[in-house]
């Protein structure tokens, strides 16, 4: 989660809390709010829109630089980042589901194939 004291208003008149400068948006993600796996999966999914470069976490905050292609406008970059944060929420939910159901999925697969023989014996 981005806290209001971690970002400044943009140079432009937009209401976005992010700064788009030289094709890059930098921000900090709170690892107490988003799991690293969720952040990495979101960045992977958005690889066509921007390249995410992570630095070492500092005090549970992960610095991330989102590097856009030279042709991307500020407006498009900010909209992409908005969608990225939505994706982060989705990925966080997926991690939650994964944590809760991983063992059950293994059990279902084991149960499914417990009485079958995928290789014919004849």
């Amino acid at each position: 989660m981005v806290r209001s004291d971690q970002v400044t208003k943009t140079d432009t008149e937009t209401q976005s809390p992010f700064i788009f400068r030289d094709g890059v948006i930098q921000t900090l993600l709170d690892l107490r709010v988003y799991r690293l796996a969720a952040i990495q999966k979101s960045a992977y999914r958005f690889a066509e829109q921007f390249t995410a470069v992570f630095d070492s976490p500092k005090e549970e905050r992960l610095p991330i630089r989102c590097i856009f292609a030279p042709t991307v406008t500020e407006q498009d970059a900010l909209e992409t980042l908005r969608l990225f944060f939505q994706e982060l929420l989705d990925q966080e939910l997926r991690e939650q589901v994964g944590d809760e159901t991983r063992a059950l999925r293994a059990l279902i697969v084991a149960q499914a194939f417990s009485r079958t023989d995928l290789i014919r014996q004849d």
């Binding site: 989705d90 939910l93 997926r94 589901v97 809760e100 159901t101 991983r102 059950l104 999925r105 279902i108």
Partner: peptide, 10 residues
């Protein structure tokens, strides 16, 4: 209730 393994997409 207990969640079953699910996947979701927009």
């Amino acid at each position: 209730y207990q969640l079953a393994p699910v996947r979701f997409s927009r």
